[in-house]
Amino acid sequence: MPVFPSEEWLDEFVEKINGSAEYAAAAATWEGDLVFVYEKEPDKGVDEDVYAWLDLWHGKCRDAARLEGPDDPKAKGAKFTISAPYSRWKSVVKKELDPVKGMMQGKIKVKGDLPTIVRYVNASNVLVDLTTTVDTQFIDEV
């Protein structure tokens, strides 16, 4: 079972995205990459911020990678960046935190063109729901 947030977990997530008819429909016209930042929490085993980059295009994930950090050109050039401490992401993956409410409460930070995010809110919701379908082991529970 892949450990969140590892490269293996990201690969499984990408498989879920590319196998989802719901996401393909909701994001049919989406064009742009995004970076998820899982912020460090050393007491939970996440010693450094983790940058996961997804190249999303017309309902599919064309490419994905774990980046070196904020100076990686892909991180700098990403259309959207969504950041939160590791334990908040864990709550999202475990369906304990609704990401929309998390964003409104400032628990999850979004950087990028807000009108685009709002237009594609259904696609974003599906994307987040897909994280909950990955069989996941959490790094602080291994």
Partner: peptide
Amino acid sequence: ENGGLDAMLAGLLTA
């Protein structure tokens, strides 16, 4: 610094 709904609405209004 808050970065919640206030920032989201500000983003929409700025655009």
